[in-house]
Nucleic acid binder design. Structure first.
Ligand SMILES: [Mn+2]
Ligand SMILES: [Mn+2]
Ligand SMILES: [Zn+2]
Ligand SMILES: [Zn+2]
Lengths: 141, 141
DNA sequence: TCAATATAGAAAATGATTTTCAATATTTCC
DNA sequence: GGAAATATTGAAAATCATTTTCTATATTGA
């Protein structure tokens, strides 16, 4: 997904893509894992991008509002992953917290006619191949 | 779902179904809405069941652990609904917060062979019929 | 250029959740 | 039955995540 597109999306809701947000977004989008706000803050730090934690919260908030970030609830904790705008489904590795896009058409369920379905989520949870071999080797990382 | 079954499930993990938990469970299971811990606490109060908020948190924790309660993340807030053990899918009304079971077979996605899928969630979000007619009538409740 | 609007970030406030702990209840085993 | 071990309760305190506040700064738009 293009950064210009994201800027347009944000501007459409009177949000701005500042240099701070752009740097953070780069870090966020390049991570294949779902992250807590604090984890994103730490990760940015490692890239020598020193942004206030409040700003991290605000970025995740606006990205979620425009649909570019997706929140995941895992084991009582809320994580965020950069997922772009096109609707798709996910596999979440409960071991390494990586989030992978998966192929497949949207599920269809029997919903009463008079219900309006505005969105849906279909997420799979489990262990990715890397983490399985790691576990096989006796490593709990 | 039988209360005895729930007791067995809890006992299986060395949890006990005390009288406090049983009263709370009655209130919880009879609600068709997803609830925050505080909301369940208030609801119990209305039924003249006065249980500490800490106990409410602990009940939801153990019920989630044994799979009888399901957490929902909606708009940044974590709610819980009594859902029993048999796997199924849900429609969540974003207006009244009721959670309805929906029919349909589990979706199938293309997941790499070497991934282990341990669980999945398929949730629909929208507006139930009651809330649509309420909105039509100009009521924002 | 000037006014209006949005953001950054530190500090403080808030609020939700967890921990602690003493009392009580339940289970286990002799 | 009756310890001893284990689990629970709930109030209070502590902790932790998130939001609010506020001032300086930046951006947008007439
Ligand atoms: Mn994705
Ligand atoms: Mn259900
Ligand atoms: Zn993994
Ligand atoms: Zn409704």
């Amino acid at each position: 997904m293009d950064k210009l597109q994201i800027k347009e999306l944000l501007n459409g809701q009177k949000f701005r893509l500042t240099s701070e947000r752009e740097s953070l977004l780069d870090v966020f989008a390049s991570s294949s894992s779902m992250l807590t706000p604090s984890q994103l803050y730490e990760l940015a730090d490692k890239h020598d991008i020193n942004i206030g934690l409040t700003t991290v919260y605000r970025l995740l908030e606006v990205l979620t509002k425009v649909g570019v970030a997706t929140p995941f609830l895992v084991d009582g904790t809320i994580f965020y992953a950069y997922c772009g705008c096109e609707h798709h489904h996910h596999f979440v590795c409960l071991s390494c917290h990586r989030v992978m896009d998966i192929q497949g058409s949207c599920p269809s369920f029997d919903v009463p006619d008079n219900f309006r379905v505005s969105s849906h989520r279909s997420d799979l949870y489990g262990t990715c191949s890397d983490c399985q071999t790691a576990n096989d080797a006796g490593c709990t990382h």
